[in-house]
Design a protein around this nucleic acid. Structure first.
Length: 452
RNA sequence: GUGGCUGUAGCUCAGUCGGUUAGAGUAGUGGUUUGUGGUGCCAUUGGUCGCCGGUUCGAAUCCGGUCAGCCACCCCA
């Protein structure tokens, strides 16, 4: 027999799990809607050209590529096969790839439909994305991203609203200890300038980003190798302290980072944002860099402490995302919640609301098939009253039918047999208390509606 | 892509020093005198011990390889 199993990094969701995921989705989606975002969808796969080169070298390696159909090998020059030139061969074997995130497909969407879009365009999108990463805790190959982006304005209002969205969404999910970390690409540039590492900016930010996990002592050698002067090590250390996101603390950045155009621009922006948001659970984290190359302004990350699940959301401002598709001067900003990781955290902490799974409320049993007319009539009435009702499909032993109701957590069972028919009434069994009574239709509806 | 750990029934796991027909719990199915579930009792289905090879009289057990899963790194939601 064929081995049964789903590919690594993917999951099946049973009804209970799906109800939990939909709960999270409702929390995020309703917040997005309240801020005026409109929903779009894009295909699961894109032209490979659309995706490659947008996520840096590491990102390109993690793209799932779709094999061309047909006799794809016949078109590959033999020399490329003999030399095992993967890069060349892949170009000829694959023209499509699964989307790696929702932001790049969105950029493509904006450029393609620019004449039909009203700017500034606020869109949200909740779809699966795919990464050929090695799976581990909190990391999957197929996972659901929940994006919101504003494109077509350089205003900082989106940044302000994203922080508010973080706060209200995490509160709705009962993750009260959430932390929002904020940094600014220009602050990072000012820092690099100060320690003379502007030439190695990307490598510098990668190391900074690691400081969250790895202590400075272990990274010291790497920093020095990059060209950092020994006396600046203590400076890096001082940058690592968490900074509350308020005007007073932002002002102090002038004392720890040398004056430069970049610095004053960043401070001006952060001031504006901070003066318009509640600073609750928000911090500036100068070591936050984020790997995706396309961020140019503010960058965000949200996580909960005491969990090794990683960040629950990331985002930031990008000025040139649509440039590659031929549309300039299209500044935008966005965030993305990782629904799967949020689900993992809620599972760890058991923070699910009760009764997420909307099971059947009333099961109608069959004693003998001659009662079917009555059964369908009462089922129709119950459904008219919005009571979730199902009829057991076979006239099996009552024991079996009750077992089914019990296993499915169905709270009420209606039985119509000879006795009930003679009285023109129905038996209603409360599966929680175990009590059963013979009632008229009106009394029965009353009884059910009272307790659900 | 690099490293570590683990593969025995649908699920969770025992299985001694290499020794007869590989076990338990749970889930499933049937029954417990047929119009009443949860807890009980009885019976019963279900396994090429991940796969391939080697050592041995004999392998779930030891060795090599391979595949899969998990965890960590890189990177990220």
């Amino acid at each position: 027999m064929m081995a049964v199993g789903n590919p690594k990094g993917t999951r099946d969701f049973n009804p209970t799990q799906l109800a939990k995921r939909e709960y999270i989705q409702r929390c995020i989606e309703s917040t997005y809607k309240k801020y005026g975002f409109l929903k779009i969808e894009t295909p699961a796969f894109e032209h490979l050209d659309t995706l490659t080169g947008k996520y840096g070298n590491e990102g390109d390696k993690l793209l799932f590529k779709i094999l061309n159909s047909g006799d794809f090998l016949s078109k590959v020059p033999p020399i490329d096969l003999i030399e095992k030139n993967s890069a060349q061969v892949i170009k000829q074997l694959s023209k499509k790839g699964l989307r790696y995130d929702l932001t790049v497909p969105f950029a493509r969407f904006v450029v393609q439909h620019q004449n039909d879009i009203v700017f500034p365009f606020k869109r949200y999108q909740i779809q699966n994305v795919y990464r050929a990463d090695r799976p581990q805790k909190g990391r999957y190959q197929e996972f659901l991203q929940c994006d919101a982006d504003v494109i077509g304005t350089a205003s900082l209002l989106p940044e302000i609203e994203f922080i508010k969205i973080y706060q209200s969404t995490f509160e709705a999910l009962k993750l009260d200890d959430f932390q929002v970390f904020i940094n600014h690409r220009k602050l990072l540039e000012a820092m690099a300038l100060q320690v003379g590492l502007s030439e190695n900016f990307t490598a510098f930010t990668v190391l900074l980003d690691k400081l969250d996990k790895v202590p400075l002592e272990k990274l010291q050698a790497d920093f020095l190798k990059l060209g950092l002067k020994k006396q600046d090590i203590s400076l890096i250390q001082s940058w690592m302290r968490p900074i509350p996101f308020n005007l007073e603390e932002i002002k102090k950045l002038n004392n720890t980072i040398h004056e430069s155009n970049k610095l004053s621009e960043a401070i001006e922006e952060l001031n504006f944002i901070a003066s318009n948001v509640n600073s609750k659970n928000a911090h500036i984290n100068l070591s936050l860099a984020r790997g995706l190359d396309y961020y140019t302004g503010c960058i965000f990350e949200a996580k909960v402490p005491q969990s090794n699940i990683g960040s629950l959301s990331g985002g930031g401002r990008y000025d040139k995302l649509t440039d590659g598709f031929g549309l300039k001067n299209m500044s935008g900003a966005g965030i993305s919640f990782g629904l799967d990781r949020i689900a993992d955290v809620l599972e760890e902490r058991n923070l699910w609301p009760k009764n997420l799974l909307e099971t059947t409320q009333v099961l109608i049993t069959q004693i003998d098939s001659s009662s079917l007319q009555d059964i369908f009539a009462i089922a129709a009435e119950l459904r008219k009253k919005n009571i979730r009702t199902e009829v057991y499909p076979e006239a099996k032993k009552l024991k079996k039918q009750l077992e089914y109701a019990n296993k499915q957590n169905i709270p009420f069972v209606i039985t119509i047999g000879e006795e009930e028919k003679a009285l023109g009434k129905f038996s209603l069994k409360d599966m929680i208390s175990g009590r059963q009574e013979i009632l008229s239709f009106e009394a029965l509806i009353n009884q059910i509606q009272k307790s659900i």
